[in-house]
Design a protein around this nucleic acid. Structure first.
Length: 820
DNA sequence: ATCGAGCGGGG
DNA sequence: GTGTACGCTCGAT
C-alpha cells in the first residue's frame, strides 16, 4: 500500500465489470496529473413503506427485485431498515442498494408501482455527487489516499484507492488555459455546417498562441499558420493535450466555441480524444449545453457570471466586453466584424488585426476566469461539489447542494424534487413580500441611509424559520406568534429544537463571522483574498435561503417559511420607520431592509445614536447598520404594473458616483433611435441634473421623427429568425418580412437576422413591416416609433420626475411656464 | 388576460 | 449524468 495526497478536480464514474467505479482526475501535491479510482461505493436510495404494511415482507420482496432488459441487468443488492428525520419527524425507511447507478431509475419506477410503498426518496441524486457527500471528499481540496497504482490505459498514472479522506483545507492552484475561436461568417447567421473556423487563440500564464490557416505577413510571434481548418482543429486538440490544463476556460464556450469545434471536427472525422483517459469530448446539446471531458474541465465562465455574478454587476449586458470592462477594467479590442469575411477572402495582411482581436478575447477570458476563480473555488469548497457543476449552478442549486451536503450530519432525509403538477401548484401560490414605503417623487438632498445587516438570514436564524420546525406538536399552544400574519393563518415555529435549515443558516453566519475574525489577524494578501472570497461565498449562500424557501423547484420548499421571513422583515422595518418618525426624522423611502431619511441639517451623530438604541432591542443576530450618505437623490412615483411595484431611484454620492435602481434596459431588437434617446436622457438627468434639458432632448427627437429627419438606419429593427419560416404559427413582423425576402429569392433561414422598418398605413404591424430597401424615402411610421420605441424607452425615467408621457408628445405651447 | 416566441451570450 | 435553463418582454389572440 502506498499513500499519496492529491487534489480532485474532475469526478466521474464508469462501469467496469458491471460495477460502478469512481474516477477522480486531479493533481498530486507535487503538481503531477493523476487519476484516483475508487471501486468501493454503490448506489442506493430510500423506500418508505405504507403504514400498516408488512415491512419484513417488503424488504424481502425488494431484495429479490431484478430487471432484465436486453443487455441491461439491474438488481437490488441489499436492503435494510434505517431511521431518518424527515422535515422534523422521525421516519423509518428502507435503504435499498442497486448494482449500478443507471439501475436506480429503472428499479425506482418498478418499486413505485407497488401497493405497499408510500414513497421513494433520494433516488435522483447523481452518483458522483452522492459519493462526494458520503465520503466527505471536497473537490479542489487536498485529499489523502491509500492504495496502489493500477495498470489502466490512461495518459496519466492511475491509483486505486483503498482508503480516502480529506487531509487539509488547502486548495489547488489550477492550471488554466483559455481559448476562443473566430469563424467565417459572410452573412450574419451562424451556420456551423457551412462556415469554417478560421482562427483559434489560446491564453495561459506561460503560453499564448493564435492559429490560423491563411498566411499573411506578420511580426506577431504568437501567430502560427497551418494549412487548413482540419489541421487547425488537430492542432487545437494537440495543444490542449500538451499543455495539460485543469481548466479550459472560455466565454460562452459551452454554448458556442465547443459545439462549433465539435461540429467541424465531426465533419472531418477528427477524434477529439481530450480526456486524460483518451475518452472523447462529449457535447450534451439542448437548451443548456454541457461539455464533458474526463480530466480537463470546461469552465465556461459566462455561465457562472450569468447565474451568480451578474446580479452584482452594474451592467445589464452580459457581453464579454461589458462584463470584462466592469470586472477587470479591460474590454474587447475593436475590429470591423462586418469586414472580417471579406478580409479573410482577400487574405490580406489586415488579418493581423483580427489575430490580435482573437488573442485579446482569450486573454480577457483568462483574466476574467482568474478574477472569479477565488470565489468559485471557495464556493466549490463550501458546497462540496466539482467546479464544473458549481460553475453552472444557479443560486438555488448552490443552496440545495449545500443542504444536501449538510443533511447527513442531521440524519435528515432530503425531500423529493417537485413533480410537474406540484411545480404548477407552487407557481400559483403567492405571498406578501417586503414592505415598501413609497417614496415621494422628486429630487432631495442630504439623505442618510440605514439598513439591516443580512436581514432575511438573521430572521431565519433568530426565529427558527425552517420546514422542520414548522408546526411542531410540542409548542402548539406556547409558540411565539408570527407578526403580521397573526390570526389570518395560524402557524408557528418550534421554540425548543432548532430546525435543520435554521441551524444550517446560523452555522453559515457563525462561520462567516469566524472567517472575518481570522481576516483581521493576517496581513498576507493571498490569504486575505481567499478568506474574503470565502466570507463572500457564505454571505451569498445565506442570503439565498429566503429565495430558496419560495423557489418552486426547491426540495426544501416552504411557502410558510418564505411568508414568515417576509412577515418578520416587514415587522422590523416598520418598527424602525415608526421609531425614526418618533425621533423626528423625515422618512423618505424604505424598501425591505433599508430606510432613507432626510437629515435636514441634523448632525450625523444623532442618527448614529438612533441606530444604537434600535440595536439594543433586536435579537442577537440582527443588526441595523449605517449604509451611507448621499448629497442628492431622485425618487420615483411608482407606476402601477400588472404585478407588484417596481422600485426606481437614482442616487448621487459625494464622490459623484451615480447609483441607479430599477430602470429596465433596452434590448438588441430595439431601434437605435430608442436606444440613443434612453442613453442620453439618463446621462443628462443623472450627471447634469437638468430635467428640462432631458425633456427637451426627447421632444427634439420626437420632432425629428415627425419631420422624418431621423435617418432610416436609426429606425431599423433587428430580429433574429429562430426556426424555419413555415414552422411559425404566430407571424410577427419579422416573420412577415422574412417571408417576402424568401419570395424574392433571398436565402432566409434559422439564425438569419431580419431587418425591418415599420411604415405608415393601417392594420397590423406585421403588414406594415418592410425591408429597409423597400422603404421609399423616409416613410417610416413615426407614430409607431414614438409610441412603441422612444416613449417606452424613456417613459419610466420621466415618471421618476413626475412627468407624464403626454407632456412629451404635446406640442409646445408657450415658453413662459416651462413644463408646469 | 393569456399564450407563444424571442432574447441573452457567441461570430 | 440516479438531469432537462430561466426570467422577462413583446406581439398576437
Amino acid at each position: 500500500m502506498t499513500k499519496l495526497e492529491f487534489y480532485p478536480v474532475d469526478v466521474t464514474y464508469k462501469i467496469t465489470e458491471d460495477k460502478p467505479v469512481i474516477y477522480m482526475f486531479g493533481r498530486t501535491k507535487a503538481g503531477e496529473r493523476i487519476c484516483v479510482i475508487d471501486e468501493r461505493f454503490m448506489p442506493y436510495f430510500y423506500v418508505l413503506p405504507k403504514k400498516g404494511e408488512n415491512t419484513e415482507f417488503l424488504i424481502d420482496r425488494l431484495k429479490r427485485l431484478e430487471s432484465k432488459k436486453r443487455d441491461d441487468y439491474f438488481r437490488v443488492i441489499g436492503a435494510e431498515f434505517i431511521d431518518r428525520n424527515f422535515l422534523g419527524s422521525p421516519m423509518t425507511v428502507i435503504k435499498v442498494y442497486a448494482n449500478t447507478p443507471a439501475g436506480v431509475p429503472v428499479l425506482r419506477e418498478e418499486i413505485r408501482s407497488w401497493n405497499e410503498v408510500e414513497n421513494i426518496y433520494e433516488a435522483d441524486i447523481l452518483f458522483v455527487r452522492r459519493y462526494l457527500i458520503d465520503r466527505g471528499i471536497v473537490p479542489m481540496t487536498l485529499t489523502e489516499v491509500e492504495g496502489d497504482f493500477a495498470s489502466v490505459k490512461s495518459r496519466v498514472p492511475v491509483f486505486k484507492a483503498e482508503k480516502i479522506m480529506q487531509s487539509s483545507n488547502e486548495s489547488l492552484q489550477p492550471r488554466i488555459l483559455a481559448f476562443d475561436i473566430e469563424t467565417y461568417n459572410p452573412s450574419n447567421a451562424i451556420d456551423m455546417e457551412k462556415n469554417p473556423i478560421i482562427m483559434v487563440s489560446f491564453y495561459a500564464k506561460d503560453f499564448q498562441k493564435v492559429i490560423t490557416w491563411k498566411r499573411f505577413n506578420t511580426k506577431l510571434n504568437y501567430v502560427e499558420f497551418v494549412d487548413g481548418e482540419a489541421e487547425l482543429i488537430e492542432r487545437f486538440a494537440r495543444i490542449i493535450e500538451e499543455y495539460g490544463p485543469d481548466l479550459i476556460a472560455g466565454y460562452f464556450s459551452d454554448g458556442f466555441d465547443w459545439p462549433y469545434i465539435k461540429a467541424r471536427a465531426d465533419k472531418y472525422r477528427i477524434r477529439l480524444d481530450l480526456g486524460w483517459d483518451y475518452s472523447l469530448m462529449k457535447l450534451k446539446a439542448g437548451k443548456a449545453e454541457a461539455i464533458q471531458m474526463n480530466g480537463p474541465v470546461s469552465l465556461d465562465i459566462f455561465k457562472h457570471i450569468d447565474r451568480v455574478v451578474s446580479r452584482k454587476l452594474r451592467t445589464d449586458s452580459k457581453k464579454l466586453g461589458d462584463v470584462a470592462q466592469e470586472l477587470i477594467g479591460k474590454g474587447k479590442t475593436y475590429v470591423d466584424m462586418d469586414k472580417f469575411a471579406e478580409v479573410w477572402d482577400e487574405g490580406s495582411d489586415e488579418l493581423e488585426e483580427y489575430c490580435k482581436y482573437n488573442y485579446n478575447d482569450s486573454l480577457v477570458a483568462y483574466e476574467l476566469t482568474e478574477a472569479l476563480l477565488p470565489n468559485l473555488v471557495e464556493m466549490v469548497k463550501i458546497v462540496g461539489q466539482p467546479i464544473y457543476d458549481v460553475n453552472m449552478m444557479s443560486m438555488s442549486q448552490l443552496v440545495e447542494w449545500y443542504l444536501m451536503r449538510q443533511a447527513p450530519s442531521f440524519n435528515e432525509l432530503a425531500p423529493n424534487r417537485p413533480s410537474h403538477d406540484e411545480i404548477k401548484k407552487r407557481r400559483m401560490q403567492t405571498y406578501m413580500g417586503a414592505f415598501v414605503f413609497e417614496p415621494k417623487p422628486g429630487l432631495f438632498h442630504d439623505i442618510i441611509v440605514f439598513d439591516f445587516r443580512s436581514l432575511y438570514p438573521s430572521i431565519i436564524a433568530s426565529h427558527n424559520v425552517s420546514p422542520s420546525s414548522l408546526n411542531c406538536s410540542c409548542c402548539a399552544d406556547t409558540a411565539e406568534m408570527i407578526p403580521e400574519i397573526r390570526g389570518k393563518m395560524h402557524y408557528w415555529f418550534c421554540q425548543k429544537k432548532k430546525g435543520f435549515m435554521s441551524y444550517v443558516i446560523e452555522d453559515i453566519i457563525a462561520r462567516r463571522m469566524r472567517v472575518k475574525e481570522i481576516m483581521k489577524t493576517t496581513d498576507d494578501e493571498t490569504k486575505q483574498k481567499i478568506l474574503d472570497a470565502r466570507q463572500d461565498g457564505l454571505k451569498l449562500l445565506s442570503n439565498s435561503f429566503y429565495g430558496y424557501f419560495g423557489f418552486f423547484g426547491a426540495r426544501w420548499y416552504s411557502i410558510e417559511c418564505a411568508r414568515a421571513t417576509t412577515a418578520y422583515a416587514r415587522f422590523y422595518i416598520k418598527d424602525v420607520i415608526n421609531k425614526a418618525q418618533d425621533a423626528g426624522f423625515e422618512v423618505l423611502y424604505s424598501d425591505t431592509d433599508s430606510i432613507f431619511m432626510l437629515l435636514h441639517g441634523k448632525d450625523r451623530v444623532v442618527a448614529k445614536k438612533f441606530i444604537d438604541k434600535i440595536n439594543l432591542e433586536l435579537p442577537k443576530l440582527m443588526e441595523l447598520e449605517y449604509e451611507g450618505y448621499y448629497t442628492s437623490g431622485l425618487f420615483v412615483a411608482v407606476k402601477e404594473q400588472s404585478y407588484g411595484a417596481k422600485k426606481k431611484y437614482a442616487l448621487l454620492s459625494k464622490d459623484g458616483h451615480i447609483k441607479i435602481k430599477g430602470f429596465e434596459m433596452v434590448r438588441r431588437n430595439w431601434s437605435f433611435v430608442a436606444k440613443d434617446v434612453q442613453q442620453e436622457v439618463i446621462r443628462i438627468i443623472l450627471q447634469e441634473n437638468d430635467v428640462e434639458k432631458a425633456l427637451n432632448f426627447v421632444k427634439d427627437t420626437i420632432k425629428d421623427l415627425k419631420q422624418r429627419k431621423v435617418p432610416l438606419s436609426k429606425v431599423v429593427i433587428h430580429t433574429q429568425l429562430q426556426k424555419p419560416i413555415a414552422e411559425y404559427e404566430n407571424v410577427g413582423p419579422h416573420v412577415a418580412v422574412a417571408k417576402r425576402m424568401q419570395d424574392s429569392g433571398e436565402e432566409v433561414g434559422p439564425g438569419s437576422m431580419i431587418k425591418y422598418v415599420v411604415v405608415q398605413g393601417t392594420g397590423k404591424i406585421r403588414d406594415r413591416a418592410k425591408m429597409p430597401d423597400e422603404v421609399m424615402g423616409n416613410e417610416y411610421d413615426y407614430d409607431y416609433y414614438i409610441n412603441n420605441q422612444v416613449l417606452p424607452a424613456v417613459e419610466s425615467i420621466f415618471s421618476v420626475l413626475g412627468h407624464k408621457k403626454e407632456e412629451l408628445v404635446q406640442p409646445e405651447q408657450s415658453k413662459l411656464g416651462g413644463f408646469f
